[in-house]
């Protein structure tokens, strides 16, 4: 059976050169003026152009949460947004969480509670947890479990992740 992909060739126009687009992002507090191709996702821009490889590419389809970053304080999947669309926004990645040598309270809590094994999901978990705290909607463990369900952990550290997030939630009132 012929593949359908083969029966649907890209139109010729799709291979023509397309200009890059100037955007400005504030990334972890630094203003960055960038030229991006319109199809560049925010995740690929962070990892490949800005060398911020703390943000992980897990599924690249918005299913695992490993790519979670904060945009103007709100958590989103950076794999499912185009960088050009976020022109003018402030982005916070895992690299922007600590203050100098002082770990962010969530980072310290994840260490304290052994809230990871391989660590691949951890940057996304921590950014997501900060987003959850910013949203101010979680108070109980059930709330945390439900509102962290967009971040998968294949090592299964969920119980300890919940412990770590609860610690910081209870220490830091919602903003």
């Amino acid at each position: 059976m012929p593949t359908l992909t083969a029966s649907r060739p890209l139109p010729a126009e799709a291979s023509r050169p397309i200009d890059t687009i100037p955007i400005t992002l504030t990334v972890n507090g630094s203003v960055r003026r960038l030229q991006v191709e319109p199809w560049t996702t925010l995740l690929d821009l962070l990892r490949d152009k800005l060398d911020l490889t703390g943000t992980k590419k897990g599924c690249d389809h918005g299913q695992c949460g490993a790519c979670t970053v904060l945009i103007d304080g709100r958590r989103i999947n950076s794999c499912l947004t185009l960088a050009v669309v976020r022109d003018g926004c402030a982005i916070t990645t895992i690299e922007g969480m600590a203050t100098g040598a002082d770990l962010h309270p969530l980072q310290a809590a994840f260490i304290e509670h052994d809230a990871f094994q391989c660590g691949y999901c951890t940057p996304g978990q921590i950014c997501s947890a900060q987003g959850l705290i910013n949203e101010g909607r979680a108070t109980s463990r059930d709330d945390v479990r439900e509102l962290m369900s967009g971040n998968l952990c294949r090592c299964g550290a969920y119980t300890n992740i919940t412990d770590a997030v609860m610690d910081v939630l209870q220490a830091e009132p919602a903003r």
């Binding site: 918005g62 958590r75 989103i76 959850l132 369900s149």
Partner: peptide, 9 residues
């Protein structure tokens, strides 16, 4: 539906 990250976008 979805996850908090998706609902934010």
């Amino acid at each position: 539906g979805a996850s908090p990250q998706l609902r934010n976008a």
